[in-house]
Every structure is written in C-alpha cells, then in structure tokens.
C-alpha cells in the first residue's frame, strides 16, 4: 500500500510517496538522500522522542521536565505518556538523571531535562 508523507528534514517539505515493492521500500518525490531515509523510516517504523513534565516533591520548582532518552515507536507514545503521569520525582534532580527505566516496555528510559533543587537550601 502506498503512503504519503511530508518530509520534515528541511523547510522545502517534499511530498513523499512510499511503498513496498517485493520487500524493498521505495520512495518517490524526495529531492535528497535525507528525504529518502526519512520516508523509509516513517514507512517501516515511525519513531518519536516523547517530552513531558512531571511533578516534583520537595523541589524548588513544582515540575521537572523529562524526555525519553531514545525515540520510541510512535504507537507507544500514549503508553509512554500514561507512564510518565504516574512518576513521582523527589528533589534534588540533575539533568540527565533517570526517573523511570524501560518506559512502557520500549527499552527507553525517562530522564530529567532540568535541574530541580531541594526546597530548603
């Protein structure tokens, strides 16, 4: 089955048509190799990095922003968000610190993207 995408690699925004031809993924409409790579990835296994934010206990900030440390399959995004909503973070937190391992069975970890210090300093 043919699928259509708008390429996101640059502002040109080529309209890509991608299809499977006997096991080989074909891309048409791209004007550069980056467009082809994007088309193949989006057709075979679309991936997204999830960013969100979670409440912190005893922190100098109410919330701590977080992200998955690797892109996760697009169809797993709702599960990842659900898991992030359940996280309880305790201050202090450093940037890059893991706050949830192997989120929703994706193999990716959720890590803090901001520093939150203890409330009493």
């Amino acid at each position: 089955m043919k699928k259509e995408f708008v390429c996101i690699a640059c502002p040109v925004g080529c309209r890509l048509t991608v299809w499977d031809e006997g096991g080989e993924v074909k891309v048409a409409g791209n004007t550069c190799p980056r467009g082809k790579a994007y088309g193949v990835q989006e057709f075979t296994a679309p991936m997204r990095t999830v960013t969100s934010s979670a409440p912190v206990k005893h922190g100098d900030q109410a919330m701590c922003s977080v992200k998955t440390d690797a892109p996760v399959p697009k169809d797993k995004v709702p599960d990842v968000l659900r898991a992030i909503r359940m996280i309880q973070i305790k201050a202090p937190v450093k940037v890059g610190e893991c706050v949830l391992r192997d989120v929703a069975g994706t193999g990716a970890n959720v890590v803090a993207t901001r520093r939150v210090r203890d409330k009493k300093r």
């Binding site: 990095t49 922003s65 940037v95």
Partner: peptide, 12 residues
C-alpha cells in the same frame, strides 16, 4: 538535539 531546559542548563 536538546530540550529547552537542557540547552539553558549548559549555559547556566
């Protein structure tokens, strides 16, 4: 590729 807070923290 960084998030906004990560980018800021490098300078902070």
């Amino acid at each position: 590729e960084l998030t906004g807070p990560e980018y800021a923290q490098r300078f902070v």
